[in-house]
């Protein structure tokens, strides 16, 4: 009896899984069809790229922490208001901490920072976006990554698994001027079986407002 019930259970679960995956494909197909303004039957519009579909498929409700500016650097206008924009590629007198390792040959400051409105970023089409929406700038080139970020696959989200989520901006993890993720110091390794008597204590380490307790070992 028990085995029979188990078998029915397994059958039910597999049917359920099938239904789940089937349902997913169906939903995606629907979205795809709606993508290019499908309701106007006679008029055929050119395909719309996903980054441009934002108005119809709005970003999920996104809250992000403040952009990670260096100390005292923002607003840019506090210095740049009186300075003439200079698009020339040159050795910078200020901002010497910035090393551009991000398509360096194709890009210079004013390709992403707006020359007129100094506190804004500039998209390729000349539109302005604020620093709090810098993902619009990154998404121009990194389309697939941008899509995965919106879906919650790329990058870190915190908050609630069923409800409000807090996204991180691209620049919270990737320095926009040098985007490769920087290596970290790992937390201590667990005690080896022969070293279990060498655990001295645990000490608190605070990372992004979260305190975790890591072990300290005898030398």
């Amino acid at each position: 009896m028990y085995i029979k019930r188990k078998a029915i259970g397994i059958f039910f679960v597999s049917v359920l899984l099938l239904a789940i995956s089937g349902g997913q494909f169906y939903i995606n197909a629907e979205e795809g069809r709606q993508g290019g303004h499908g309701n106007d039957a006679g008029h055929k519009e050119p395909p719309v790229r996903s980054a441009e579909k934002l108005s119809e498929h709005p970003l999920p409700e996104i809250t992000t922490p403040k952009p990670p500016f260096s100390e005292g650097i923002f607003p840019c206008t506090s210095c740049h208001a009186g300075l003439e924009p200079n698009a020339q590629r040159r050795e910078l007198g200020f901002h010497t901490d910035i090393v551009l390792v991000h398509s360096t040959k194709q890009r210079w400051c004013l390709d992403c920072h707006d020359a007129q409105d100094r506190d804004m970023l500039r998209l390729a089409n000349g539109e302005h976006v604020p620093f709090t929406k810098s993902y619009m700038l990154c998404g121009q080139c990194h389309g697939p990554t941008f899509n995965e970020w919106k879906a919650g696959v790329h990058g870190k989200r915190t908050g609630s698994w069923e409800g409000k989520k807090e996204y991180r901006l691209c620049v919270h993890c990737h320095n926009p001027h040098s985007p490769r993720y920087k290596p970290l110091k790992p937390s201590p390794m667990p005690a080896r079986p022969q070293d279990i008597n060498k655990v001295l204590d645990t000490v608190g380490v605070t990372i992004e407002n979260q305190t975790i307790y890591i072990p300290v070992y005898k030398k």
């Binding site: 993720y181 970290l184 110091k185 790992p186 937390s187 201590p188 975790i212 307790y213």
Partner: peptide, 11 residues
């Protein structure tokens, strides 16, 4: 990246 922060956040 193998940083083990998850290990100690869990502990």
């Amino acid at each position: 990246i193998g940083c083990r922060r998850c290990v100690y956040a869990c502990v």
